[in-house]
Design a protein around this nucleic acid. Sequence first.
DNA 1: CTCATATCGTTAATATAGTAAACAATATCC
DNA 2: GGATATTGTTTACTATATTAACGATATGAG
Lengths: 158, 158
Amino acid sequence: MASLRKTNIRAELEAHVETPDLEEFIGYNLKRAYVIVQSDFRRALGEDGFAPRVFSALSLVVQYPNVTQSGLARMLGIERSGLVAIVDELEGRGLLKRTDVPGDRRVQALVPTTKGKTTYAEARAAVRAHEDRLLSNLSDEEKATLMALLGKIRSHED
Amino acid sequence: MASLRKTNIRAELEAHVETPDLEEFIGYNLKRAYVIVQSDFRRALGEDGFAPRVFSALSLVVQYPNVTQSGLARMLGIERSGLVAIVDELEGRGLLKRTDVPGDRRVQALVPTTKGKTTYAEARAAVRAHEDRLLSNLSDEEKATLMALLGKIRSHED
DNA sequence: CTCATATCGTTAATATAGTAAACAATATCC
DNA sequence: GGATATTGTTTACTATATTAACGATATGAG
């Protein structure tokens, strides 16, 4: 049994619980796993890379050109007020532009620039590489199973 | 195919991507699933209930009485500076006390009070009920599989 | 024994992620 | 035409976390 800390005899003596309750909660395991994947994502994409949520937004804009901010917020499951800063960043980096939509002057459609599309393709490759490396101890079948089970949880969305 | 919004013909016309890239990333699915479980946890435990991290800390203090704050932070995978507020809250609610440890005057061991132990038992039951209800569309076997797969990701901890 | 080094709990400063509420402009419904 | 709803935005706030520093204390090397 590994010690928590080499010199801490007191803690050592108390550490007699077979399996802590915490480890049996899905929520706790989900969070711990998420923290690992998220921090590896950031490490892999580097200083001037994308934060996960910015990458996600860019991904959807590239795949759904002319999506509106409200629509994008809905897809991402966040408030539209929270999306403003994300779109600001992407527009500031020249990866998309806000464009007027004829027929509804409240709306501004989000359109990826050429640079946005190529940058996204590169970032996507980097994210795939990060996941392939980090999750190399899972087989393809295990990954598929994990996705399916997470999908069952996600069925509660909306 | 469900529409994103009943009147948004423009978005409708563009929404032709079979499977968005995002949905194929484990990290994204992990995050979306985590958000659902977390927010249901909070809803289930109510206004004056515990935040997930406070519940986790209490759980470990009850199961590892006399754990130190540094030790607890290590178990939770957070900085010890971040643990201070959590322990303050639990102590303020009378669920644990900081106690001097003879032999090392730097350390204060965390000991659950009687109220802390009973409150934890109730909270644990509430959390189990929340997970049972939220995850009722997963079989026991599926839950076990999910735990095992999350455990493989968690093997990268430390 | 003493001195360098490490650890403990804590505070303060900062960063990030997210919500809620309000707003003006515009669109839709009856 | 007038009530109602939606869009993008700003502002204020909350929660969660990290880093760096601190004084107090403990440990290890010589």
